[in-house]
């Protein structure tokens, strides 16, 4: 029972990590938060659903749904964000809020308002035995996806020149620009990558939580809490925040089912009281 819960918490944390990492780094770069991030997660799941329905292969969906959301993100950036870059940040945030409505209705128009489900791929359809407890292998796969992304991002951000440029732009936008870093380009790629990761999260959890209109807000709220708690702009913050919220949520539901959401709120309030900028803010 206990191991199952730990693994569930870990799986949930990894999903949150996939969602929050893009949001947090984009926030670090352009000081705006994309409230339509949850919408991209939902779109990832829906596009995955369509690919899976047509091709009958989960793996095609797994590969192409994130690419599709990354392209959508790139378009969004080129059409909207570039257009309004000189506008004050609050207006940009409100703009992304309008996108939530558009996303929600588009999904309903295209895929209908019924909820759908994706079958677990055959490779992971059998549960596994861990210390005498059966556990669905697919959830282990989700954890693996999260850890892989974490390691790749860590390597790119900390060990490559490109990553150093991203970190420099987060820390000091103007100075980086002056030193010849194309912050514009970095922002564009980070934004698209973040959207792609949101889509990846959507399609990977689709076999577990199903696909339905409205899944965007549930996740957006938790992702925002992770960003606030972890402190925007840092990979470490996103990871620690995701783990914290993932574990508090899962174990809160086990120990105090009545207060399920209150526990996260309490955790967030405590952290904000003692560390208003989040735990690992780079700003």
């Amino acid at each position: 029972m206990f191991i199952t819960e730990i693994l569930n918490a870990l799986q949930f944390s990894m999903t949150l990590f996939l969602l929050s990492v893009g949001l947090t780094i984009v926030f670090g770069l352009m000081k705006i938060v994309n409230l339509a991030h949850g919408t991209l997660y939902m779109l990832g799941a829906y596009i995955g659903l369509s690919i899976w329905t047509f091709s009958d292969s989960f793996w095609l969906a797994f590969v192409f749904a994130p690419i599709a959301t990354a392209i959508l993100g790139a378009l969004l950036y080129k059409v909207l964000f570039k257009f309004i870059q000189r506008v004050d940040p609050m207006r940009q945030v409100l703009l992304t809020f309008g996108l939530i409505y558009i996303g929600l209705d588009s999904v309903r128009l295209i895929w209908g308002s019924m909820s759908h489900s994706i079958t677990t791929p055959e490779l992971f359809s059998n549960p596994i035995n861990i210390f005498g407890e059966t556990y669905p292998t697919y959830r282990l796969f989700v954890i693996l996806v999260g850890i892989t992304v974490l390691l790749i991002l860590y390597f790119v951000l900390e060990k490559t020149k490109m990553g150093a440029m991203v970190r420099a732009s987060v820390d000091d936008h103007e100075t980086s620009q002056m030193l010849g870093i194309n912050t514009e380009k970095i922002l564009f790629y980070t934004f698209s990558l973040g959207c792609g990761l949101a889509g990846l999260a959507g399609v990977t959890v689709a076999p577990i939580v199903g696909v339905e209109a409205g899944m965007d807000m549930e996740v957006l709220v938790l992702t925002l809490i992770v960003v606030v708690v972890g402190g925007p702009g840092s990979l470490k913050g996103a990871l620690i925040g995701s783990l914290l919220i993932g574990f508090v949520d899962t174990f809160g539901k086990v120990f105090f089912p009545e207060l399920a959401l209150i526990t996260i709120y309490a955790a967030m309030a405590l952290i904000l009281i003692f560390k208003p900028g989040g735990m690992y803010s780079r700003l």
Partner: peptide, 21 residues
């Protein structure tokens, strides 16, 4: 009293989270 120390986008994020909760 707890949340006004944050501002701008943080404030939006926190109020959204509280409301949904």
């Amino acid at each position: 009293f707890i949340i006004v120390k944050t501002d701008g986008i943080f404030f939006i994020m926190i109020t959204l989270a509280l409301g949904e909760m």
